[in-house]
Structures are given as C-alpha cells and as structure tokens.
C-alpha cells in the first residue's frame, strides 16, 4: 500500500515528538491504544492558565506510519487552540488531511481518543468535570 505524501512527510519529519512533565498541573496526558493492538499513542497538551489556550503539545507513538502521522498532525493542530476548540477535532478531519485509506481510519480515531484523554486529564487535574464524548468505534 502506498502512503500519501503527507503521511510520509509527517513520518520522516515528525512534529513535536517529546515529553512534557506529566505531573505539572498545566499538562494533560492521554495514553491510548495497547501494545497488543500494534499501536499506542501518548499525546500531551500544556495549557496556559490565563488564556485557556494550548501553548504546547507533544506526542510519542508506537505504531505504523499512519499512526505516527496522525499524532504528529494532531499536535500541530492542537497548538494555539482553546481546550474547547481542541475537543472539537474530529478524526475524519485527520483522515481527510492525510488521505488515510479505510484500513487506517483507526489511526485517526486513536489520535482523536488521545486528544480527548489529554483534555480530560487536564480538566480533572484542575478540578473540572471530565467532558463526555460520543463513543466512536471502528474496531
């Protein structure tokens, strides 16, 4: 299967690989997937207290090229967004941007799950209620 140019670009030059301090109050961490399934994503956001804007985002991913590209793209999109707007990122936006084929849609779902898990980690750390999301299950 041939990858799209955008997937190859994110894979070859991933944006925002790294680790934020998960114990910091401003940092939300989402760890989703499982090694047995062949993909694990860890996505972290750092939120500016005053503005509620995500000022930094980092990822580390174990998975195929599409999983790596999906998480790299997600961190790019997260930066500069408010937490509320970040919660609106839809996996199909990622599918479209990266031209993912049907067998790789689960990679985008995983990225969406990771964003939401990171947001809720941040919210619960700061005394807010976790947001409730519709379940999206492709497999």
């Amino acid at each position: 299967m041939a990858y799209s140019d955008k997937v190859i670009d994110h894979y070859s030059n991933p944006k925002n690989v790294g680790t934020l301090d998960k114990n910091s109050k401003n940092v939300g961490t989402g760890l989703v997937g499982a090694p047995e399934c062949g993909d694990v994503m860890r996505l972290q956001i750092e939120v500016d207290d005053a503005t509620g804007i995500i000022k930094d985002a980092k990822f580390k991913t174990f998975g195929c090229g599409s999983a790596i590209a999906s998480s790299s793209l997600a961190t790019e999109w997260l930066k500069g967004k408010t937490v509320e707007d970040a919660a609106k990122i839809d996996n199909m936006d990622i599918v479209e941007e990266l031209s993912l084929p049907p067998v790789k849609i689960h990679c985008s779902v995983l990225a969406e799950d990771a964003i939401r898990a990171a947001i809720n980690d941040y919210r619960t750390k700061n005394g807010m209620e976790a947001m409730v999301f519709d379940e999206k299950r492709v497999h």
Binding site: V32, A34, R42, K60, T61, F62, H139
Partner: peptide, 22 residues
C-alpha cells in the same frame, strides 16, 4: 518516538499497565 520505549527505560513493566483496548 515510542512511548513504550520511554516507559521501558523508566523501568515500568508494560504488562502491569492497564491499556485502553480499542
């Protein structure tokens, strides 16, 4: 780039982690 490698290096036993199976 692998979160699992980082966890392994931190000495976390990956079999004890509760993974969100999807």
């Amino acid at each position: 780039m692998s979160p699992l490698w980082e966890m392994h290096k931190e000495g976390i036993d990956l079999t004890t982690v509760e993974w969100a199976h999807h």
